[in-house]
Design a protein around this nucleic acid. Structure first.
Length: 191
DNA sequence: AGCGGGATTTTCT
DNA sequence: GAAAATCCCGCTT
């Protein structure tokens, strides 16, 4: 029997980042529910100088030190939001950044939120994904087991379907292999 | 297809 | 005061 419960999220970030590939996010907006499949992730934990939690708990990173299964949303570059899932044991300060996802079903709301863009441009980057799904700081700390944003675990992918690389956009810890994506997925932000 | 710069504001030093 | 887990546009090859 395959384990698809949230207790999986309490494992180390490197493992959870890979385990989340292929899992679903359900976003409710008004009457509509949009489902996307997670296609690209990065892992961060407190021992990592590139992580927001590296210097300890601050007002901004407080939710990162909370229980696994909550959202950690941060604002960056003066205009973008990025979305993480808090992982690891309570108080650990680990999270997985959601960098890309594949929309399943109707994409009209996503396209509207993305100012008319379509196809892979809807969700092939962390800030694009947040814009498409209308995710901002008001959802930081939200528990992903309830609406309006739920995580639906799915069976683990085969290891051979996953590509591992260095992370994107960092100035510290650039060499660490902590980015993971579904190898043949079109929505991956960069090959 | 690839490179370079500008946008814009929160967060922490 | 500087940097930032990014994106988009315009220019060059």
């Amino acid at each position: 029997m395959t384990d698809t419960t949230f207790s999986i999220l309490e494992q180390p970030a490197d493992y959870v980042a890979q385990r989340l590939l292929g899992c679903y996010l359900e976003r409710s907006i008004g009457d509509e529910t949009i489902v996307v499949k997670i296609a690209e992730t990065e892992s961060y934990d407190q021992a990592d100088a590139a992580s927001h939690s590296f210097k300890g708990r601050t007002p901004r990173t407080d939710v990162m030190f909370g229980p696994a299964g909550n959202l950690y949303i941060y604002f960056t570059y003066g205009m973008h939001y990025c979305c993480n899932i808090v992982v690891g044991k309570d108080g650990e300060g680990a999270a997985v950044l959601l960098r890309a996802a594949e929309p399943l079903g109707d994409t009209s709301i996503l396209s509207l939120n993305r100012k008319g863009r379509d196809g892979i441009e809807l969700t092939n980057g962390p800030a694009k994904l947040c814009q498409a799904l209308q995710i901002d700081k008001t959802l930081s700390g939200h528990d992903l087991s309830s609406p309006p944003l739920r995580l639906r675990m799915q069976p683990a992918l085969d290891a051979c379907a996953i590509t591992t690389t260095t992370r994107i956009g960092l100035t510290k810890e650039k060499d660490r292999l902590r980015r993971f994506y579904i190898t043949d997925n079109a929505y991956v932000s960069k090959k």
